[in-house]
Nucleic acid binder design. Structure first.
Lengths: 253, 253
DNA sequence: CGTCTACTTGAAGTGAGTCAATAATGGTGG
DNA sequence: CCACCATTATTGACTCACTTCAAGTAGACG
């Protein structure tokens, strides 16, 4: 079918992401695109390399990683199907990007793409819309990283996964966690241990059900929403929002 | 002269922001623009309002503020001359934006601007470039908020001010801090008290010199760079990087 | 079935937040 | 021009959430 870009449009009233490209635009983009596959852990490109292509993910998950000078790394963003990957500046990629799962993506050469955008303002407007969408996501992420507590960050992250149709692969309401704990930690600005503790806490208090390391289910959506809204941050307060939670388990003692 | 947009270009090799618009583009944009002035504290627009115009700052400083559900606020970004203000989505502004200082800006009606962008792909590409620039800035901010310590955040913020030519208004090397401590705190994800403490610490250790509440000077650029690079975070380690710092001055009295 | 890696759990340390008091600024009117 | 007051900033003592360090445990894979 050809490349596909989802985002919330700039104009109009829909507040849910939708396909930005017309059938015709997708067909035209397909003419300059090739399909590439990556294995888990494989790099799509490295930070600082000359930028030659942009990827449009068809299936799978990728992460953009920025190395902090002190050796740690920050996962700047995760990318799913219908996303564009390949942020660059001054002709060079701004971050390294790596496949998290097996990945299939359209590969769009930048020079051909730029020529196409220069001749097709409507198409270009769709790219502008997608980048704006990413900007708002990055701003939201910045707020979360700077102001939210550990539990809230994890709650928000689980909600983020829930919003992605790709993560609902099973026939039931279970949600896939494609990345490992270290990736989550580096994304939300916590340690692996804190991520684990918060997940277990949400599990213990009956907000979510953890089903192995890479799957979970939202049991109490109401409590999760309250958590995300930031009404509270401690587990004591959390318990108060859970209707019939058996207090005789967890809680030390 | 007409609207003006600075950013690091996507293509090319310059890694410093430069004027993206041609003289002709600026003249054409001036035809749809009007000039508006705002007093300190005045709102340019409010979050959720229907988006009708985008501002291009000529002089002064603005801040985009997002209200956290618990009553606190986050300063998502500060805007200076040559910046575009008026992020929107689904036809509505994404955040409230407020003048920090007296502000002069071009006011560009969105519908007229969109028509212009649809007819001028080169101009649109410059807007795409500017939004990409903001995206990278937001990602960088997210990393800083999530992973850096308080001292490093403040060091980074002072460096950010230093990079803006607008803040170098005096004939010497003093830099203006246009916003108050609360704005800084809400921007870097700290409390007012922590901002104050970190500023005083940098002052005490001779890295900067504070000159009133809204002005400072970088005394030891080397130490500041090391701080930003994240080599260390404590003041003990900081002292070690300061060659010949007279410990007998500062310190009250 | 065993080994390796990824994850979980616990105990102790620490950096930033909170609360509270003091000090500096800046604007206003005497 | 100076005294006053409201606002904004600084400083200190204490608390707590998250990190760090150190075991343990469970999945994944050969």
């Amino acid at each position: 079918m050809g490349p596909s870009i989802y985002a919330i449009p700039l104009s109009g009233s829909s507040t849910m992401p939708r396909q930005l490209l017309t059938v015709d635009e997708r067909r035209k983009l397909a003419l300059i695109a090739s399909i590439r596959r990556f294995s888990p852990g494989e790099f799509l490109f490295h930070e600082g390399e000359p930028a030659t292509v942009i990827f449009n993910i068809i299936a799978g998950v990728a992460k953009s990683v920025s190395s902090l000078e002190d050796g740690r790394q920050a996962v700047v963003a995760f990318f799913f199907s219908h996303d564009l990957v390949g942020m660059f500046e001054a002709s060079r990629y701004a971050q390294s990007t790596q496949a998290v799962t097996a990945l299939t993506a359209y590969c769009l050469p930048i020079d051909a793409l730029e020529r196409m955008l220069r001749h097709d303002p409507n198409l270009q407007l769709h790219f502008l819309c997608k980048v704006s969408h990413e900007l708002r996501a990055a701003q939201h992420q910045a707020i979360a990283l700077g102001r939210y507590g550990a539990l809230q960050k994890i709650g928000l992250f689980l909600d983020f996964l829930d919003r992605h149709p790709d993560m609902h692969t099973d026939d039931d309401d279970r949600i896939t966690i494609p990345m490992d704990r270290a990736d989550i930690a580096d994304h939300v600005g916590l340690t692996i241990e804190s991520v684990s503790r918060m997940l277990q806490q949400l599990h213990r208090t009956g907000v979510i059900q953890l089903d192995g390391r890479h799957r979970f289910r939202i049991i109490n959506r109401c409590a999760l929403n309250r958590l995300i809204s930031g009404a509270m941050a401690t587990d004591a307060t959390l318990d108060a929002f859970i209707p019939e939670h058996n207090h005789s388990n967890g809680h030390t003692s």
